[in-house]
Write a protein that binds this DNA or RNA. Structure first.
Lengths: 138, 138
DNA sequence: AAATTAATGCAATTCCATTGCATTGCTTTA
DNA sequence: TAAAGCAATGCAATGGAATTGCATTAATTT
């Protein structure tokens, strides 16, 4: 495992325990967002609750973000932008491929500005696009 | 109950049973999207399963749409655009107010076009904005 | 070394959506 | 009109997953 992994935790003020290193390492290897169950399978026989709480910590410290892709099971992915404990900036689009069932972050695809009705104030936005990804197109 | 309510069901090829009229009537009265539990409370002592299946039928016939607002419990609202059994066109933005916890359709707020990466094809989009609604701003 | 705090693991809860199945009601047809 | 078939309903059970409680273990501080 890369030594930089530990540094990534320290940078975010996260105590680098063995479990947390494993989870972060697994996340670093992904090219799509994965679910708690995926992580559980990938780290067997690690305990589900611990992973759950690890992800919660990561999210609170601005290391990962939680993606609601509409499938009902939350997905987790590393923050690509500079996020911290106070604020998340993952205003990019997420893409759910109906063919391979994977969820991708599209960091270069920002959510466009939109004009809300009068007196509506936005603090957060979540845009999920469903369709077919590049690898699944035939 | 308005007689037009029954016609709305017939127009969508939905057999207008008593239960379905009640559910549709309740939906017509809302100015925000509501959950299955909300409807259940509003129609006590009607059975949850029946309401669930009623909403499923409505959705399949293009009368209502299901909104995933990220709270974990799906919300239901009447389709404002012309939807039918084959296709839904509810490409408007949904707004979740973190103050009153209500979910609104913003039919005049369309999801802007966006350019996906090469070889990604979109079939559906869901944009949820979180923030404070007009009634909750102080 | 003792005491406090942080992290972990197991078990139990809880919350809903969803399904199975039996019953009831409606409609068609002989 | 009676029988048969299909549609709708209601109750009970299932299932999946997030979440919480609590006891144990590990790490840190005094």
């Amino acid at each position: 495992m890369n030594a930089g992994t530990e540094q990534k935790l320290i940078n975010k003020n996260i105590n680098p325990t063995a479990m947390r290193l494993l989870v972060l390492d697994l996340l670093l290897k992904q090219n799509s967002a994965i679910s708690l169950s995926d992580i559980e399978k990938g780290l067997e026989p690690a305990d589900r609750t611990t992973i759950y709480r690890t992800l919660k910590t990561f999210e609170e410290k601005g290391l990962t973000h939680i993606i609601d892709d509409g499938t009902g099971s939350p997905k987790y992915a590393l923050c690509l932008e500079e996020c911290d404990a106070n604020e998340h900036h993952d205003l990019h689009v997420h893409f759910y491929c109906t063919s391979c069932k994977e969820t991708f972050c599209l960091p270069n695809c920002k959510i466009p500005d939109l004009s809300l009705p009068n007196d509506f104030t936005a603090t957060e936005m979540n845009l999920v696009v469903k369709g077919v990804c590049d690898r699944c197109k035939n």
